[in-house]
């Protein structure tokens, strides 16, 4: 259940206060905002720019420069599939396709409409020995197959809708 706005808005204010509204802290501030909101909403970036006395275009520039920042809402579970050389060779693409089919996603549409899942590919997670590698939030899974990936996702779907399981 998303929090009502006022509470959420208070949080960006707190983050800014924690950093003394110091424009030199733009990057850590954006990081904290992203931790709080899971992405960088446009309105929040404008507010950050306002209170740091920076032009919004500068804040946007920084936010789009670092691939770490997301400008679109992202899901509760962020699935990152490695498509680095080692994983690619060990058939990461069929995993990607299986997940896209299961979650009804496309290369353009990376997040499910209910904001549960985001599916992204990354190049090399530095765990090539385990190829192909899949990371869900902070959890790393090695030597994944399409079937195993689907299994992991199904488990999360079940966990996310307990009432459905209970009724079944």
């Amino acid at each position: 259940m998303p929090l009502p706005l006022p509470n959420r808005f208070d949080r960006v204010c707190k983050i800014l206060d924690d950093h003394d509204r110091n424009p030199a802290h733009l990057i850590p501030i954006l990081q904290a905002v992203q931790d709080e909101y899971r992405y960088l909403p446009e309105e929040i970036m404008v507010y950050v720019a306002t209170s740091l006395g920076l032009p919004p275009a500068r804040v946007y520039g920084v936010a789009t420069f670092y691939s770490h920042f997301a400008l679109e809402p992202r899901g509760k579970y962020i699935i990152r599939l490695c498509d680095g050389t080692a994983c690619h060779v060990k058939a990461s693409i069929p995993i990607l396709e299986a997940l896209q089919r299961r979650l009804d996603l496309t290369p353009q549409r990376k997040t499910t409409p209910d904001l549960r899942f985001t599916l992204e590919t990354v190049s090399c997670l530095g765990a090539c020995g385990l190829a192909p590698v899949l990371v869900i939030n902070e959890e790393v899974y090695g030597q994944v197959t399409p079937a195993r990936a689907i299994e992991l996702v199904e488990a999360l779907i079940a966990k996310e809708s307990p009432h459905v399981t209970a009724n079944a």
Partner: peptide, 15 residues
């Protein structure tokens, strides 16, 4: 201002 990176780099208005 500058936004994006690499081959995508561009000078654009905010957002």
């Amino acid at each position: 201002d500058f936004a994006y990176r690499g081959a995508q780099s561009a000078v654009v208005p905010a957002f």
